[in-house]
Design a protein around this nucleic acid. Structure first.
Length: 199
DNA sequence: GGGAAGATTTCCT
DNA sequence: GGAAATCTTCCCG
């Protein structure tokens, strides 16, 4: 199973459009253990300067958010608690915008995913959450700042999705008015959405 | 250098 | 449904 990374120009879309365009694309990670991949089924947009929920709110530039100010199409990995979350940086340089990948649908390397995630019985539970999919695909801080058009972690062309739902984001109740922005996108009716994405 | 917060997951009652 | 788990970065002193 081999894929070609998507063209770099794909990431030049405005963040809100990119968040929707990413749905149906293939997220691929290659390691020495093998290849794992999944269709992206749920995303969230984070528009730095005007988004209180974003790490880069008010153009707050730190070592952690540094990569969000970089060019579109690179990976922004972030560790919280025990888990790792993965974003796709978007927007032009010096504009801290990104798209959080919240859920994917497993495609290749199912065995490897089960191996990485203990006690999982169903395909449905492998990647239906931001922290879950990173563990299943083996995404870590090693991938921080890495381009998504190059191995070992990249986006590949996928299906065209026409049925897209949108709504408010999750887990940012302390972010004031920003919590009401409808910047979460998902594939309507897909069973691999994150827990809170099924509302 | 220390304390606090955070875009989550999992287990237990 | 609630609370704990557990780690990196940030901010203040």
């Amino acid at each position: 199973m081999k894929y070609n990374p998507i063209l770099k120009s794909f990431f030049q879309l405005p963040t809100l459009e990119l968040a929707q365009a990413l749905l149906g694309k293939l997220l691929v990670k290659e390691t020495e253990d093998g290849l794992t991949s999944g269709w992206i089924v749920e995303t969230e947009a984070y528009i730095g300067p005007e988004d209180r929920a974003a790490h880069s709110y008010g153009n707050r530039r730190t070592k952690r958010t540094e990569v969000m100010f970089g060019p579109a199409g690179i990976t922004y990995t972030y560790v919280m608690h025990t888990h790792c979350l993965v974003n796709v940086v978007s927007g032009p340089i010096d504009q801290p915008e990104a798209v959080l990948i919240r859920a994917v649908e497993p495609k290749d390397g199912l065995e490897l995913m089960y191996q990485r995630r203990n006690n999982v019985k169903r395909d449905l539970d492998l990647t239906n959450g931001p922290g879950k999919l990173t563990k299943a695909l083996g995404i870590t801080m090693e991938d921080y700042g890495h381009s998504l058009t190059d191995l070992p972690l990249y986006i590949a062309e996928g299906n065209v999705i026409t049925d897209i739902s949108k709504g408010t984001r999750v887990g940012i109740d302390n972010s004031g008015e920003a919590k009401d922005y409808p910047w979460r996108f998902w594939m309507t009716g897909n069973p691999y959405l994150s827990r809170k994405g099924k509302s």
